[in-house]
């Protein structure tokens, strides 16, 4: 589904990604772990099309097309979803308005009829129940005055509404207490399917207790240094990231 070859990206002249290679197939759940500042969020943002990054080298193919040719909205309509680490506040625009605009933009692209107000309401109510969100959220401005946990639930609510092909969730677990983490994890697990790939970008193993990944990658210094099965995450939890970096230096030498 997604194939990344030798991807280099920089921001303001500073290189952050230094040759990423990554393959993700439909039906898989990948976890990308790594220390702070390793480039995890940059990778997620670059895939979603954040215009602040310059791609200096490499290729990204998504469903056989050159992803870098597409605008952020085209990527979303083709089924890419980024759950933001820091969801943005949009004062004056209600969640209902925002979600309905988004849902219909994506449905149009897929050749599906737009949902009307009634259909939208029943759909969003169902998903909100899943996320244990109060319906009053619908009339609140997007992320404005939300707690950290509410923002993350709102991201997963959008994920559930938009049903993307490729979901990249950037630290969706951070800032959640244990109950909220369970709700969020259940929401994500409910979306696992043969046609959908999920990428969890995370700092800690905690989320992976709830969502079992197929592949775990260690990203450090702008490269993927090591990939393995779920057991790799546990090893990282016990030993930290230092040994992976040492090991990779030894291989390079």
């Amino acid at each position: 589904m997604l194939s990344i070859r030798n991807l280099h990206a920089s921001r303001d002249g500073k290189e952050i990604l230094r040759g990423i290679d990554l393959d993700i197939q439909a039906g898989e759940v990948h976890a990308i772990m790594g220390p702070n500042g390793s480039g995890k969020s940059t990778l997620a943002q670059v895939i979603a099309g954040q215009p602040g990054y310059q791609i200096t080298e490499g290729e990204v193919a998504y469903l056989g097309q050159d992803l870098m040719e597409l605008s952020p909205e085209e990527r979303a309509r083709e089924g890419i979803f980024l759950g933001f680490q820091y969801p943005v506040e949009i004062p004056g625009v209600s969640i209902a308005m925002f979600l309905k605009t988004s849902l219909n933009a994506i449905r149009r692209q897929q050749g599906l009829p737009e949902v009307d107000a009634m259909e939208f309401l029943s759909l969003v109510r169902e998903k909100m129940k899943l996320m244990q969100m109060n319906e009053a959220f619908l009339t609140r401005a997007v992320n404005e005055g939300f707690s950290g946990g509410e923002k993350k639930r709102n991201e997963v609510l959008q994920l559930a509404m938009l049903e993307p092909r490729l979901a990249i969730l950037d630290e969706t677990d951070s800032g959640l207490d244990i109950d909220a983490l369970e709700v969020v994890a259940n929401g994500i697990n409910g979306l696992r399917s043969a046609g959908r790939a999920i990428v969890l970008v995370t700092h800690y193993q905690r989320l992976l207790n709830y969502i079992k990944p197929d592949v775990v990658h260690v990203l450090a210094q702008g490269r993927i240094l090591k990939s393995g099965g779920p057991e790799l995450a546990l090893e990282l939890e016990q030993r930290g990231y230092g040994w992976v970096e040492q090991e990779s230096k030894a291989v390079a030498a």
Partner: peptide
């Protein structure tokens, strides 16, 4: 710019996103 990108990443075209931001403001 961050708000614009957030909306675009949800499939909303740049023009509609700008208008929504103005409306919200």
């Amino acid at each position: 710019e961050d708000s614009l990108f957030y909306m675009q990443s949800r499939g909303i075209d740049a023009e509609t996103a700008r208008s929504l931001l103005v409306y919200g403001f």
